[in-house]
């Protein structure tokens, strides 16, 4: 449940950051589908976690060191919302200036997604399809998997 709320909150963040499309999809995916998936997995496996055998000190230390290194790395990064940041200098201005004339679609996210980066999106659709096939192959039919296990 907390997980769903977390997703909805990050959808809100995306909305504030002007990413309408992304906020849209995060709200539908996070609050709807992935929460249901998590719950059904929990129903299929164990509900309670066992008491951990290791002490939590070492992981905490690793995490703190990594986090400190990352924070040190951000000191050279451009400020939040800075229009002069390197990200905004290279490809994006071309998309923003040319896409209305070239593609004729007002929503730039759609035109970049479907047209300029069509290959990329084709690959991603294939990944989604493959994941679906993988889920089917792993846990689809109970009888068949049981027979295979007996043989193996």
């Amino acid at each position: 449940m907390l997980f769903g709320i977390y997703s909805l909150l990050s959808a809100g963040i995306f909305l504030v950051l002007d990413a309408l499309d992304v906020a849209f999809i995060e709200a539908a995916v996070g609050a709807g589908i992935s929460t249901v998936l998590m719950l059904s997995t929990l129903a299929l496996t164990e509900r309670k976690e066992k008491e951990p055998r290791h002490k939590a000190v070492l992981p905490l230390l690793v995490v703190l060191v990594t986090g400190a290194a990352l924070v040190y790395g951000t000191l050279d990064m451009p400020d939040f919302g800075d229009p002069k940041a390197p990200v905004h200098q290279h490809v994006a201005p071309r998309y923003i200036q040319q896409s209305p004339a070239e593609i004729g679609v007002p929503n730039m996210v759609t035109s970049v997604l479907a047209s300029y980066r069509g290959y990329d999106t084709l690959g991603e659709v294939t990944v989604i399809f493959t994941a679906g096939v993988g889920v089917l192959a792993l846990i689809a039919d109970r009888r068949r998997t049981r027979r295979r296990r007996r043989r193996g």
């Binding site: 679609v105 007002p106 929503n107 996210v109 759609t110």
Partner: peptide
């Protein structure tokens, strides 16, 4: 999806 936010994924 061409005019407002939206598209196939959403």
């Amino acid at each position: 999806g061409d005019y407002g936010p939206g598209g196939g994924f959403q």
